[in-house]
Amino acid sequence: MLQSVQGIVIRSMDYGEGNKIIRLFTPELGKVGIMARGAKKLKSKHGAVTQLFTYGDFVFFKQRGQMGSLNGAEIIEAHHALREDLHKSAYASYLAEMTDRMLADEEGNAFLFEQLRAGLMAIEEDKDMQIITHLYEMKMFDLAGYLPVTDACVSCGETAGLTTFSPTLGGTLCLRCRHKDPSTIPIGEGTYKLLRLFPRMDMRRLGSVQVKEETKAQLKLCMRTYMDVHIGVQWKSRGFIEQMEKYNI
Rank of each mutant, 00 (worst) to 15 (best):
V5R: 09
V5L: 06
G7R: 00
Y15N: 06
K20T: 05
L24N: 03
L24Y: 03
F25C: 14
G30T: 01
G30P: 08
V32F: 07
V32C: 03
I34T: 07
I34R: 04
K40G: 13
K45W: 12
Q51S: 11
L52P: 02
F53P: 02
F58E: 01
K62A: 09
R64V: 13
G65W: 13
Q66S: 12
Q66E: 14
G68L: 10
N71W: 00
E77R: 15
H79N: 15
S89K: 15
Y91M: 06
T99F: 04
L103W: 02
N109F: 06
F113G: 13
R117A: 10
I123R: 09
I131Y: 09
L135E: 06
Y136G: 06
M138C: 12
M140Y: 04
D142H: 12
Y146N: 04
L147P: 00
C156L: 08
G157I: 03
E158P: 05
T159Q: 12
P167N: 01
G170R: 02
L175P: 04
C177T: 05
H179T: 11
G188C: 08
E189R: 09
K193R: 08
L194Y: 00
F198R: 00
S208W: 05
V209K: 05
E213D: 15
M223W: 04
G232F: 12
V233P: 05
W235T: 12
W235G: 06
S237G: 08
Q243C: 10
M244P: 03
